[in-house]
């Protein structure tokens, strides 16, 4: 959540919409959908290259979110919650396609099935940055990608990586420190 006045009022709006949607108000849910569709669709589309499959998955995420909202008393953070659903849906999608033997391999599905970067538009500096990022530890790479390439906030990244926002801040700091060291050597 952005800590300024417009950010605070935005959060109150989201909370109000969530409360109304929980009571069965479809119009309120439609506004939530408009708010979250860009990020959720980006998250899914970067991981599921087939367009129709990605659209179906996004629909399933919002349907699941609606279904669960109806039975819930209070959602403390809709942001984190819907990204948890998104993460689980993507993982389930991959589970139906392939077999996995360990959780680490499965969690690395938060990698990309298709490149999200426009390779032809990359300048030299951007290419160097992406090369440097490959030397980061896996969790640092994930945070860098989710934060800077997918434009998600700490709460959303925490839901996807199943960590706390505080841990995400720590990983971000380590990642940027490591990148600074890489470019200075």
């Amino acid at each position: 959540m952005i800590q300024n006045s417009s950010g605070i009022s935005r959060k109150f709006n989201i909370d109000a919409l969530v409360a109304e949607a929980s009571a069965g108000n479809e119009q309120a849910y439609a506004r939530l959908y408009s708010e979250y569709f860009p990020k959720i669709s980006r998250f899914v589309a970067y991981r599921v290259s087939h367009k129709e499959t990605a659209e179906d998955l996004v629909a399933e995420i919002f349907i699941k979110a609606w279904e669960t909202l109806q039975g819930s008393n209070e959602i403390s953070s809709f942001n984190a919650w819907i990204f948890t659903i998104a993460r689980n849906k993507v993982i389930d999608h991959y589970r139906t396609k392939k077999e996995f033997t360990d959780l680490f391999e499965l969690e690395n599905l938060i990698e990309y099935e298709d490149g999200i970067v426009e390779a032809i538009d990359l300048d030299i500096a951007s290419k160097k940055f992406l090369q440097a990022a490959e030397y980061l530890a896996p969790d640092q790479q994930q945070v860098v990608r989710l934060k800077f390439l997918e434009d998600l906030n700490n709460e959303e990244i925490a839901a996807i990586m199943d960590k706390t926002p505080g841990t995400i801040r720590v990983i971000q700091h380590r990642a940027l420190t490591a990148l600074k060291k890489y470019f200075n050597t």
Binding site: E26, A30, Y33, F37, S41, R42, V44, A45, Y46, K51, A54, E55, D56, V58, A59, F62, I63, W66, G115, I116, V117, E118, D121, L122, A125, S126, F129, L130, V144, K147, F148, L149, D151, L176, L179, K180, F183
Partner: peptide
């Protein structure tokens, strides 16, 4: 470094918002 990362141009996925909402609304 962070600012540069934000500025890397990215593909915008072209999912059909209306088609997806139609499915959600029907459900």
């Amino acid at each position: 470094i962070a600012k540069h990362a934000y500025q890397i141009s990215k593909k915008e996925p072209a999912l059909n918002r209306d088609r997806v909402w139609k499915n959600v609304s029907a459900a």
